[in-house]
Amino acid sequence: MSQGFNIPRFKLPAFVAKVGARLPQWPHAIALTTALNAAKKLKLLPEDSLAMLEGRSFFVDVLDTGGQAHFTYRAGLFRPLFGAMVAPDLTFRANLSAFLQLVARQEDPDTLFFNRELSIEGDTELGLMVKNMLDAIEWPRLPGFHLPRLPNFRH
């Protein structure tokens, strides 16, 4: 069985965030919303949960890269939000390694939250919904792309 790879816990040096924050932020939002829309198209995101995101705004802040993405979900699509910041309904903040560990299912969001490596601010119920929605995604086994798997003790 493939053991996959392990994402270590790391923090990028402070200057990265300083440089990153000066770069235009919209490419992050575009990349993220494009990925989310692709996931939706593949029917990976449950419709009943998506309906509850309608009109809400989200903010993802990668602390150690300075990357930020502000977006919303409206009329069936995730869309980047440009220009003046209104207070987002939900904000996720973490270092890059924590986000990667989360997406790769290497760490549990509650563990990261208890350990204060992931911060979730804003509408708590919306936050829980998004967390549960991400947990419920069945990632397709794409050829050549393996999510890291934990070693199995039962053979």
């Binding site: 760490e107 969001p109 934990l150």
Partner: peptide, 10 residues
């Protein structure tokens, strides 16, 4: 999450 379940179960 599934990650917790996997970690604790194994």
């Amino acid at each position: 999450s599934p990650t917790y379940v996997a970690q604790v179960t194994r």
